[in-house]
Design a protein around this nucleic acid. Structure first.
Lengths: 149, 149
DNA sequence: AATAGTAATGCAACTTATTTGCATATTTTC
DNA sequence: GAAAATATGCAAATAAGTTGCATTACTATT
C-alpha cells in the first residue's frame, strides 16, 4: 500500500496530510479488529495521546472511522467500509458511502476482540409510528472462530 | 407501587433488602429510559457514588438490570424485562427469564435518550461457520417520537 | 427481642479514559 | 517562500469507575 492512497483519503475529506494521520489509517487498515484509543497509544507511541484522540475525533467527524457501540468502558473504532474498500482495492471506484452504513459487529467474549462483519447486513427494522431511523447497529456477542474450545 | 414488590424482587435474587436498592429499582421503574451511573448519582444524592456503582454491578450480575450498548463512554443500564413486568403488573406470574433476552434499543440523536423497545424482537442472525452466538443487541439510532421537527 | 455472622455502605484515595488551553511546529495557499 | 490556517505536544484538568478498609445494617437464629 502506497502512502499516496492515504493521502487521497485525507484530501477527499478536506484534511491536511500528516504523518500521524497516515499512520493511524494504516494501523486501522492492517487490523481486522476494532481499535481503541489505548490500542493506538500502544502501537503508535511516537505520537502524543492527545493527538491520537484528536485524530480519532476528526476521523469520526469526517466519516473515515465509525464508532462501534459497546457495553461501556472504552470507545472502539473501526475503519468505515468505503474507506477500507478504497484502500484495499485502489482500482475500484469509490462510489462513496452508498449503502454501507449498517453492518454487524461481533465481539468475542473470550478474546475480547471486536470485528466488523461487513458481509452481514442488518435486517430491516420496523419501529412504531413516529420514530425516524437513521442508523442501525447489530451487535453480536459470542465466541469467534479462533476461540472455540 | 408498594415497597413489598421491590423486596420480593431482591429476595428472589438472593439480595439483602436495603433502602438504597429499593430506591434504585424504583428509579429505574419510573424511568422510560436507560440510565447511567451519573443519572443515579444526580437523582439519588443521598447515596454514595460507590454504593450506586456497586448496586448497578450487583443488579447486572443478578439479571435485574441489563447493560445497554452505547456509542459514548458512559455505561447505560435498563431494567430487565421480566423484572419490569413483575413490578408493573404484580398479579402476573413471573415466568422468570424465559425468552426476553434480546430486544431493540433506540437512541435518539436529538435528545440523547435511550429506550428499550421490548415489543420489538431482534431478528435471527446468521454468522459464518465457526462463530458461536451468545447474545444479540440491536441498536437503532434516529429521532424519537418527541423529537421530530 | 437480643445477638452473632455476613453482607452493604461510606469515605478516602486511586486508576484509567478523555478533554482543554496554550505555545510551538507543520501544512497549505498564494 | 511567506502568511494564514491547522495540527501537534505538553501540562494540567475533568470524568468515570474501582479498591481497601472501617463502620453500619440486614438476617437468621437463639
Amino acid at each position: 500500500m502506497k502512502d499516496s492512497s492515504y493521502k487521497e483519503v485525507l484530501q477527499e475529506h478536506q484534511l491536511r496530510i500528516t504523518q500521524g494521520r497516515c499512520d493511524v489509517i494504516r494501523f486501522f487498515l492492517q487490523s481486522s479488529y476494532a481499535l481503541s484509543a489505548k490500542d493506538l497509544e500502544n502501537q503508535l507511541p511516537q505520537y502524543d495521546r492527545v493527538t491520537l484522540y484528536r485524530t480519532l475525533h476528526t476521523f469520526i467527524e469526517k466519516g473515515i472511522l465509525h464508532l462501534i457501540p459497546h457495553d461501556g468502558g472504552l470507545a472502539y473504532f473501526g475503519l468505515s467500509e468505503p474507506v477500507r474498500q478504497k484502500l484495499s482495492t485502489p482500482e475500484a471506484d469509490t462510489c462513496s458511502d452508498h449503502y454501507y452504513q449498517d453492518h454487524v459487529h461481533f465481539t468475542c467474549t473470550a478474546c475480547g476482540r471486536t470485528e466488523c462483519l461487513p458481509d452481514h447486513m442488518v435486517p430491516e427494522v420496523v419501529l412504531p409510528q413516529g420514530y425516524r431511523i437513521e442508523e442501525v447497529d447489530l451487535l453480536v456477542k459470542g465466541h469467534c472462530q479462533l476461540c472455540q474450545e
